[in-house]
Design a protein around this nucleic acid. Structure first.
Lengths: 110, 110
DNA sequence: TAGATGGTTAGCCATGTGGCTAGGTAATGC
DNA sequence: GCATTACCTAGCCACATGGCTAACCATCTA
């Protein structure tokens, strides 16, 4: 059950890769354009792209010599969902705690 | 600007550590209790706990020989926020695209 | 105060990750 | 058709990560 989240979170734990995602939310782009703002060798950057694609965060198609990369929204939502769930559970607990505190106060047990 | 998200996402990219977080949303717990369900040596597990604490996801206090760990909600919300932002940007783009498509259709330009 | 309990430190190992260079292939443009 | 462009592969390196054992320290409990 963990599997997908593993590679997803691992993928976006790198700033270069998050920057790529941020760029891709504004629309698809070829490899060279994605690479341009990053001060690293192309092969290194290609590795990052591969990580993203392997994690299911992006897809790409090659036409002629140009490979165009686009974002895949679904896993983003899934991860967001995990975080939201955890936060809500936590907040729910806090809510119950303060309710308990209130009851204790009413009872004058404090 | 990236820094915090780096260590945060990296921290929760591990299933053991996500399990710990899930457990902690139900309330604080001592190290031994957190360790129990995980089939690995204590020192190994302690490393995981350290990663979580270093990433700011948890805090802990030691009283006597028992160290109690509790969750820290803020970074969770921050990460959730990043994901939400990306998703919304993406959906916004999709919206604008379909609006464009509509306009083109109306204009009979297709 | 001895033994058990709960954690911690040190140190080793295998594998993974992020960076590089060098060299290759396949379209495209002149 | 030769050069350029755009990307890909292979292979190297340093360091990080996740696992282990062994040995240690501190605190309760009997």
């Amino acid at each position: 059950m963990a599997n997908h989240l593993d590679s997803f979170f691992s993928a976006i734990s790198d700033p270069t890769r998050r920057a790529v995602i941020e760029r891709l939310t504004r629309g698809p782009a070829p490899v060279s354009e994605l690479h341009a703002p990053h001060d690293m060798a192309l092969p290194t950057f290609l590795k990052h792209l591969k990580v993203l694609e392997t994690a299911g965060l992006t897809r790409s198609v090659k036409k002629g010599r140009v490979r165009t990369v686009h974002i895949e929204a679904a896993p983003l939502a899934a991860a967001e969902n995990w975080l939201t769930t955890q936060r809500k559970l936590w907040e729910g607990r806090l809510g119950r705690l303060s309710a308990l505190a209130e009851r204790l106060e009413k009872g004058g047990d404090a």
